[in-house]
Nucleic acid binder design. Structure first.
Length: 159
DNA sequence: GCCAACGTTGGC
DNA sequence: GCCAACGTTGGC
């Protein structure tokens, strides 16, 4: 099992929005970066765990825990001319963009970006790296465990 | 609103 | 294949 951090703008889909959706599941559409896409296509497996991260908002940080609920499949928004994610270069026979489904495990207390940066144990976290703009980043198992146990007060084995 | 960082595009 | 221009991300 792998661990991930996935960014969402709460104005688009917040942790509370996810909690209110049918099945508490959302298609992670709109990824238009090849590295992030390749993570979904090549490395994600249903059952993987992810931090649900709020970005582009007054209080950026980890807002909850989710699980990968499907394999990667073509992102419908790339074919939708009315979508801001429409990609005229993508053909139905050869889709460029894929997404997975993400399902809520639980909302947590917000772990703010500043709190993550303050932890020496997390100094190498990919999402904290200088210049990082990826909306999906891998999380090391040690980092995952540290955040759950030390910052959230949760038992990783129960999630 | 600013701006650093970085990915993508497209002419050559 | 190079690289300048441009667009986007996202914290502050």
């Amino acid at each position: 099992m792998r661990y991930w951090l996935m960014k969402s703008e709460p104005a688009d889909c917040s942790i509370d929005d996810l909690a209110a959706l049918p099945g508490q599941t959302v298609a992670w559409y709109g990824v238009r970066n090849y590295q992030a896409r390749n993570f979904m296509m090549q490395q994600m497996t249903p059952g993987d765990r992810a931090f649900f991260y709020h970005s582009g908002c007054p209080q950026p940080g980890i807002a909850g825990i989710a699980t990968i609920a499907s394999p990667a499949y073509p992102d419908a928004s790339q074919f939708d001319a009315s979508s801001r994610f429409f990609d005229p270069k993508s053909l139905p026979d050869a889709p460029r963009w894929f997404n997975v489904d993400v399902k809520l495990v639980r909302k947590t207390a917000l772990i703010e970006l500043a709190a993550l940066r303050a932890e020496p144990a997390l100094a190498n976290m990919r999402v904290l790296a200088r210049g990082n703009r990826l909306s999906i980043t891998p999380v090391d198992p040690d980092e995952w465990r540290f955040i759950l146990t030390r910052l959230m007060g949760l038992d990783p084995d129960e999630l």
